[in-house]
Structure formats: structure tokens, C-alpha cells
Design a binder for these strands. Structure first.
Length: 886
RNA sequence: GGGCGCAUAGCUCAGCGGUAGAGCUCUCGGCUUACAACCGAGCGGUCACAGGUUCGAACCCUGUUGCGCCCACCA
């Protein structure tokens, strides 16, 4: 099956493509639908996402293979989160100059897909057997071509920067070759074997299941106590599955249990059947549970199977593959759930055999795919001997060659790889990789490698089973790169840089990739880092489920708020390892943020902001310019740190605050005065405005790719932010003094605004005021401060009625006739009390000899600073109080 | 049954040894020529409970209670 290299976006009903917006014509609102489709098309046709293993070998490589979604699936919030994280990582590394590969693909999803197609057939009253194997498999491929892979189109809507030229499918020819190759190698190494064992069996899907395909759920059942034997051989056993007694071949007791010691070795009569069965002593029996005697049904219970094996007991199968009683007698033909009460009823009829029936809550395994109760069943299956593979998989993490992030999750990983049972890999299905083993007429078994011809001649047949879906998924990190071939991709991009996935499939998938990767690739693990994220939940932390009705469709959000807003909402909630709650309002908030960026850029462009190669000399910068550039450097450093820690929530938060609370709310507002003023200050402001916006958009691009691309190209005129350089912090621009000064401006302005709000002065109302800067460097911002505060110049005969001193600057306002002295006094006194309490606390600490002797110097210094701050606050408030008219 | 984790502002979560933070919500005031998808101001928490360690605990230790998740062959 070959894939078209690229499916157009409109496959998934994307909005119509519109023309690029001219620089000067940005509308006042950002409309994602107007840009997303067009930009994605452009990215694809530019080839930005296509990796080239031969290009510039000096560059570092960065690769991620996508956790392949099921071919039956469609994009849900979990995918959207997973992909947003991967895309953010990949886009940033691409901007940093790495040779970047993000490889997409899908999983054939054995049982799930077969069930889907079987359901389709069932609508026409057909079963897969009506079609026959070949026709059925053909039908599944047809289904896959038509409706499988919808999710790939949805990934384009999200903006995933994957390399579509390398799209893979776990059942395509290349992957089939990988499967055959590793199967053969494992077989030859004795790590794959065939054996008759008790396995999990789904009586509806009619196939074996591995442990991880079984989900346990607590069910209300009945614990029935039944007397076996009679007279001096009477022994009471308890069971939740009375129907299996038909297949009992022993009763087991603990070897040290004095109650039953006399019976060990003797036979007791099994009710209903009249067979005599031995009493055996086995360590597995817990003498304190129930009566301390257990009925043993080797054919239908995993424990009993083991007991049977230890004592050489016969195994008596009493149910067929559908869970229907198959032994001759009164129960023949009854389903296991019908047989259970029927057996109990029959026992009751025979008198005092049923000793007790009580309700009992116990865990019952269910088929992950169809929720049918699993029936343990003895059958001939293929297994992977996991012990040596799992040991290697554990060691790779233990010795630090592979890092699990967050580290706490490693414990779960170890718990699993250290206790893994042999893996049942054969499935009695038709959709999947068929087991490459042929059986000969004389009982020969031949495992056939990918380049070998199967044995021919009469009597030779291929195994009819297929492999567990996870078998081919486990090869994904290298089968997608061309293994078993020694390809340029494999050499350049293996091991992959990071595996991003939810913690829920740490066991299902991750450990298996580790086992097979280490085995196939000569001990080189398949990824350097395993980065786990949580589950997407609703706004109350509840799991999204259809029955709760709280499922959110990411495409719905993309349609209404845009891909960027959807991604940003998810990433903003993505605390490392934690679950990610999402809500409609938060998506709106993210949409608003994108719009805020849009308007900041719009303002900048309208005011002639631009980006040049150089940057204004330090001496030319105003305080506000120096401040915002200083803050930018710190933000760049912080964002780098957060990316390194996979802390997307903090990266988002940092950029959100910088963009909105600092850049938009303060820098842009402070810039309005110089922009309208004389040169060269206006030009300096235009350049700083352009430079900060440029860097901000680049920093945000991995998180919100579309809006940043649209704005960045408009601002810079360059081709694409996708391949722009990632910002690097310039420590020489960090300026503590400028940060402190603008801090003072902000405090002053906030304090005056607070005063105005408290006094009921309308925000637009102009108030005469005199500003006394003393010797403060903030004098340069007088005009901006006046603008922010709607202050007018004092007229002749100006008389201040309110005085607001902050950080050495005093604003004297003429509020005659408006001011509410009582309210202001009350307000100030409240603040004063708080400030005094603050000061007292710090002072007391500094007076404490223990504190002074034992606290670190930095803490003492900070406490001193706090005291000084509290004191200046007290002085400020006292000054204001004194200035109040009485 | 075993293991892990969580309890912080109305909601969702940061903070994990130095005097409580964000977003959303809420209250009040504003269409101030980038943005009303906006702007400004404000209210709101004995950090589950009880002990302990420490000069100092939301943060470390012990226990209690209440949740959540994973694993599981006590019939």
C-alpha cells in the first residue's frame, strides 16, 4: 500500500483558502480560518518539513516518530495534546538548526479494525467466514483506503509539521519486512516459542489476548460454598464460578493446614459428576481465605493450571471457544453464565451440598475491545520469552541511557518490565501480520525469513494466526526508518530523540519498543528520552467519556477558535506528568491571546515598526526600551529552560505574561508618546518595537504556529518563521536598573489609578496635576505617565488636594470637589496597618539571634530588603495621609 | 490484595524550607484612534486534619481522613 505524499487539507472540510493579507491591511480581529489552510499548504510546498539525512552532517539530528494512531481512529483531545507537544519540540529544534524529522504514520490496530469491518459486514448479515480469509482481508484494505486515515487529514488541521513523504503504516510492505525479520531472529534465538498454555481468551472475538488487552473491573458475583465428598472425606470449597466444577480434577489445600492434612492424598467425590478427584497440598492455597480448600480446574483458571502442572493433574476442558458448556450431560449447550446458576440449582436439588451463598465483589477480566468477560482457556499459542528482553529494557533506563520524564514515572516502568509474563503474540484473527511459520506433513515446523521461500509441496501449511498488533508497533522507531535495511535515515535518525506519549501506554507500547529496539539495534535503545504527558480531562478534572457527555472534539475548537488556540490551551495545561484539564472558556482565553498578538502586531505595523539586522546602541535606548529588551532576554532564557524540562505549561505562561502584561500593557503604552514625538527617539522606539515583537513571535511559533507565521512574515518580509532562527538570550542586554525604574513607573501609575478608581474619578476624566520627580530618572517618562493617567498640566493658581508619593516621585492632583476624604483615609489606614505588620514581622526576625545565626546570608539580606520596602511603604502612606485635607 | 499519586482563592492548577501565586469566575468603573475576543481598579486562602523536626513548614517526617490512578492468577 503506497500513500499519496500529501492529502490536500480540504479533505477534512477546511475553510476556503484566502489570499495573503497585505502588511498594512490587518483587520482588527484575527480570523484563523483565513490563514490556517493557506499557511499549511505553503509549508508543505516549501518542503520545510521534509528531512534530508544527507544534508549538512555537521548539524545535530532531531527525530521523533509519532505514536501511530489507530487506523480506525479520529483525532481526539489526547492526540491533539500529544501532537501539540511533539510539534512544539520539533518546530523549536528546527528553528535551532537541527536536521529535523517528525515521522507520521498509522497502526493497523488488529482487533479494533477487524471488529469495525465485521460490524459493517454484519449490517448485511454477513460474517467474515462468509467472505473467507482472502476476501475479508481484501475488504479491510479497502476500508482502510476509503475511511482509515481520516486522522491524517485532521493532523494537517492541527498544523503538525510532519514529514509526509515518509508516512508509514504498520502493515505496509516495509513494515512487513521488518516484522518477518525480527520474528525470524527471535525464533532462531529461542526467544519465540509455541506452547500449550492457559491464556486470556475472548469468547466473542474468538482470539487470544495478551495481559494488557484485558481490563479488570470489579463485579458483583456470588461466592458459593460447596461440599465435595461425603462423610469423613467431606470438604467444603468456595467458588465464584460454579460451572467450572464440571472440569475440576482436584481439591487443593495448604500443606501446613492441619484441618485437611488427613485428606491429602485421598480422593473425594465431585458432586454432579460422581468422579473421584484427589486432594493435593499446594503452597499457593491461602489457608485463611474461605474454607482454606480450593477446587482445581486446570483448564479454566490460570492458578489452577499452575497447580495442575505441579501435581501432574489432568486438564479437563468443559467449555468450547464461545464459553458454552461442551461436556455431555444436563448442562451441555448452556452458556457459561447460564450454566452457573443451573449448576448451583442442580446441587441444591441434591440436598445439603450447597453450604452457603453470599454476595461477593471480585475483579473480572474483560476484553479491552469488546468488553466481553475473558475466559481463561488452554490453547496452543506463540509467545515471546520476555525475561532477557525485559531485563535489557529495564537496564537501559536504570543505567541512564534512556531518561524517563518526569522521573517519578520510571517507577511504574520498572514495576512493569521487572514483572512481565511471557507475551502471547498469536491472535486468532485475520487482520494482521500472519505468523511466518509453516508446518510440514511430518510435523515439521519451519520459520521463514523475509527473503526465504516457504516450503512447498503437499501437506505444508502456514500458521493461520496473526501477530498481536503491538508486535509491529514495537518495531516502529526503527521499522519506520528503513530497518532491517542499513538506510541513511536509520543512520541519521536512530535513536530517535524523544518519545512523546501519554503515561497510559507506558506499558502497552513503550516497554515493548525498548525491548525490540535494544534487541534489533545492537543494544542501542530506540529513544533518548521518554517524555510522558497526562490525560486530557474536562474542566472538573473528569475523564472525557461518551457516557458523561463531556467529550470535546478538537476539530470543533479548531473551527471555532483556531488551531493555535486549541494547541495553546492544551499546552498551557500540560504540567509535566499531570493530567490536562480543558474547558471552553480556556479555549476562548487562548483565542483572545492570539487576537492580542494580532493587535500588538497591527499596532506595531501601523506605527512603522521594523526589523533590521542591527539594534540601536545602548546609549540611544530610553528606559522603557532598555527595560523591555532586558525582560526579553530573561524570557528567552526561561523558555529554553522550560522546553528542556518539557514544561510547556510554564513556557506558555511565561510567554503569555510577557506578551500581554509587559509588552502590550506597558511597553506599547509607554511607546505611544515617543512614537508620536520627534526623531531620533521615534525611530529607536520603532526598532525596539519591531525587534521585541520579532523575537516574541519566534518564541511563540512552536506553540502557536499559524498566527505567528502570518504576523512574522508581515513584520519582517522574510519567507517563513518556520525556518527562522530561534532567539538566543543576549546577557549584555540584561539591565537591572531599567527594570527597577520601570517597576517604579508601574507602581506609581497603579497607585494613582487606584486612587482615581477609589475616588470615583472616571478613567477618561482629565485631572490637573503637578509631578515632582525630585532627582528621579523617571522624569524622562513624565509625558508617558501623564498620558497613562489622563493628567493635564496644572493651570495657573493650581492647588493640589491630594498628594501621592511613590518611589521618590510625587503626583499632586487637583481633585477639589470630588475627593472623598473619609474613604481615602480609611483605605490608607488599612494599607498602613498591613505595611506595619509586614515591617514588624521582618524586624522581629532580624532581632532573633537564632535567625541571624542560622539563616543563610541571602535570606537575611532579603528580610532586610523587605523591611526597607515595608518602611518606605509606611512612609508613602503616611505622606498621603498627611496630605489629605482634613 | 500490592504500588504510586493528590488534597493550596468559587473552579482548574503552579509553588515543594524563608512572610501565599496564575488563569478563569466574581465586584466596581470605562467604547482611552492596536485590540470591548478590550482597558483600568478591586474582592477572595488559619495551603484537608493531628502531631513532630527546624530560628523558620503549604513545602520535610509520622499518623488520620477523603479522593484519584496503575498493577493484580485469593478461589
Amino acid at each position: 500500500m503506497s500513500q499519496p505524499p500529501y492529502i490536500p487539507v480540504d479533505l477534512v472540510d477546511s475553510p476556503p483558502v484566502t489570499e495573503s493579507i497585505e502588511r498594512a491591511e490587518l483587520p482588527p480581529q484575527y480570523t484563523p480560518a483565513d490563514v490556517e489552510g493557506r499557511l499549511y499548504e505553503r509549508w508543505i510546498s516549501s518542503g520545510f518539513f521534509t528531512a534530508d539525512p544527507n544534508r549538512n552532517p555537521a548539524r545535530p539530528a532531531f527525530s521523533i516518530v509519532i505514536p501511530p494512531p489507530n487506523v480506525t481512529g479520529s483525532l481526539h483531545m489526547g492526540h491533539a495534546l500529544d501532537h501539540s507537544i511533539q510539534d512544539a519540540l520539533v518546530r523549536r529544534r528546527r528553528m535551532q538548526g537541527a536536521e529535523t524529522l517528525w515521522l507520521p504514520g498509522m497502526d493497523h490496530a488488529g482487533i479494533a479494525t477487524q471488529n469495525v469491518v465485521e460490524r459493517e459486514l454484519a449490517r448485511d448479515n454477513l460474517s467474515r467466514h462468509d467472505l473467507g480469509r482472502t476476501a475479508f482481508v481484501e475488504r479491510v484494505w479497502q476500508w482502510k483506503a476509503e475511511s482509515g486515515g481520516r486522522i491524517l487529514g485532521q493532523m494537517r488541521r492541527l498544523g503538525d509539521s510532519v514529514d509526509w513523504s515518509r508516512e508509514a503504516f504498520t502493515m505496509d510492505d516495509q513494515r512487513a519486512r521488518a516484522v518477518r525479520t525480527i520474528f525470524k531472529r527471535l525464533y532462531d534465538d529461542g526467544l519465540i516459542y509455541r506452547a500449550e498454555r492457559i491464556i486470556n481468551w475472548c469468547p466473542r472475538c474468538l482470539t487470544a489476548l495478551s495481559d494488557i488487552e484485558v481490563e479488570h473491573a470489579d463485579l458483583e458475583g456470588e461466592l458459593v460454598s460447596i461440599r465435595y465428598g461425603s462423610g469423613d472425606t467431606a470438604i467444603v470449597v468456595a467458588t465464584t464460578r460454579a460451572e467450572t466444577m464440571l472440569g475440576d480434577t482436584a481439591v487443593a489445600v495448604h500443606p501446613g493446614d492441619d484441618r485437611y492434612r488427613h485428606l491429602v492424598g485421598r480422593e473425594v467425590e465431585l458432586p454432579l459428576t460422581g468422579r473421584g478427584i484427589p486432594v493435593v497440598a499446594d503452597e499457593h492455597v491461602d489457608p485463611s481465605f474461605g474454607t482454606g480448600a480450593v477446587k482445581v480446574t486446570p483448564a479454566h483458571d490460570p492458578n489452577d493450571f499452575e497447580i495442575g502442572r505441579r501435581h501432574g493433574l489432568p486438564s479437563l476442558t468443559v467449555m468450547d471457544e464461545r464459553g458454552v458448556i461442551s461436556v455431555h450431560g444436563p448442562f451441555e449447550g448452556l452458556d457459561r453464565f447460564e450454566a452457573r446458576p443451573a449448576v448451583v440449582a442442580a446441587l441444591r436439588e441434591q440436598g445439603r451440598i450447597v453450604k452457603e451463598v453470599r454476595p461477593y465483589l471480585h475483579a473480572v477480566g474483560h476484553c479491552q475491545r469488546c468488553a466481553t468477560a475473558v475466559e481463561p482457556r488452554v490453547s496452543l499459542q506463540w509467545f515471546v520469552r520476555v525475561a532477557p528482553l525485559a531485563k535489557a529494557a529495564g537496564d537501559a533506563v536504570r543505567d541512564g541511557r534512556v531518561r524517563v520524564h518526569p522521573p517519578e514515572m520510571a517507577a511504574r516502568y520498572f514495576a512493569w518490565v521487572d514483572n512481565m509474563h511471557d507475551w502471547c503474540i498469536s491472535r486468532q484473527l485475520w487482520w494482521g501480520h500472519r505468523i511466518p511459520v509453516w508446518y510440514g506433513p511430518a510435523g515439521e515446523t519451519v520459520c521463514v525469513g523475509p527473503d526465504e521461500s516457504p516450503p512447498e509441496g503437499p501437506g505444508w501449511t502456514q500458521d493461520t494466526d496473526v501477530l498481536d498488533t503491538w508486535f509491529s508497533s514495537a518495531l516502529w522507531p526503527f521499522s519506520t526508518l528503513g530497518w532491517p535495511g542499513d538506510t541513511p535515515d536509520l543512520r541519521r535518525f536512530y535513536p530517535t530523540s524523544v518519545l512523546v506519549t501519554g503515561y497510559d501506554i507506558l506499558f502497552f507500547w513503550v516497554a515493548r519498543m525498548m525491548m525490540f529496539g535494544l534487541y534489533a539495534m545492537d543494544g542501542v535503545p530506540p529513544f533518548e528520552v521518554i517524555a510522558l504527558h497526562g490525560m486530557v480531562r474536562d474542566q472538573h478534572g473528569k475523564k472525557m467519556s461518551k457516557s458523561f457527555g463531556n467529550v470535546v472534539d478538537p476539530l470543533d475548537w479548531i473551527d471555532r477558535y483556531g488551531a493555535d488556540a486549541t494547541r495553546f490551551t492544551l499546552l498551557r495545561g500540560a504540567n509535566p506528568g499531570g493530567d490536562v484539564p480543558v474547558a471552553e472558556e480556556w479555549a476562548q482565553g487562548s483565542r483572545n491571546f492570539c487576537n492580542k498578538l494580532w493587535n500588538a502586531a497591527r499596532f506595531a505595523l501601523m506605527n512603522g515598526a521594523h526589523v533590521r539586522g542591527d539594534r540601536p546602541a545602548a546609549a540611544e535606548l530610553g528606559t522603557a526600551d532598555a527595560w523591555i529588551l532586558s525582560r526579553l532576554q530573561r524570557v528567552v532564557a526561561e523558555v529554553d529552560e522550560y522546553f528542556a524540562d518539557f514544561d510547556f505549561a510554564k513556557a506558555c505562561e511565561t510567554l503569555y505574561h510577557f506578551a500581554w502584561d509587559e509588552f502590550c500593557d506597558w511597553y506599547v503604552e509607554l511607546a505611544k508618546v515617543p512614537l508620536a514625538g520627534p526623531e531620533p527617539a521615534a525611530e529607536v522606539t520603532r526598532r525596539v518595537l519591531g525587534e521585541v515583537l520579532d523575537a516574541l513571535l519566534r518564541l511563540l511559533h512552536p506553540l502557536t504556529p499559524f498566527v505567528t507565521e502570518e504576523l512574522w512574515t508581515a513584520l519582517t518580509g522574510a519567507e517563513s518563521v518556520v525556518v527562522a532562527d530561534w532567539p538566543v538570550a543576549d546577557q549584555t542586554l540584561v539591565n537591572d536598573q531599567a527594570e527597577a525604574d520601570i517597576g517604579s513607573v508601574r507602581r506609581l501609575v497603579t497607585e494613582v489609578r487606584r486612587f482615581r478608581a477609589d475616588q470615583g474619578l472616571k478613567p477618561g476624566q482629565r485631572v490637573p496635576a503637578a509631578l515632582d520627580f525630585g532627582g528621579s530618572p523617571l522624569a524622562g517618562h513624565e509625558e508617558a505617565i501623564r498620558a497613562l493617567l489622563r493628567l493635564t498640566a496644572p493651570a495657573a493658581g493650581f492647588t493640589a488636594t491630594a498628594s501621592l508619593p511613590v518611589d521618590g516621585v510625587t503626583v499632586e492632583l487637583d481633585t477639589a470637589g470630588v475627593i472623598d476624604v473619609g474613604a481615602e483615609r480609611k483605605r490608607l489606614e488599612k494599607d498602613l496597618t498591613a505595611a506595619r505588620k509586614d515591617a514588624d514581622q521582618s524586624a522581629r526576625k532580624l532581632d532573633n539571634p537564632d535567625f541571624m545565626a542560622k539563616a543563610p546570608e541571602a535570606v537575611v539580606a532579603k528580610t532586610r530588603e523587605r523591611l526597607a520596602q515595608a518602611r518606605s511603604e509606611i512612609a508613602r502612606i503616611e505622606g498621603q495621609l498627611a496630605a489629605l485635607p482634613s
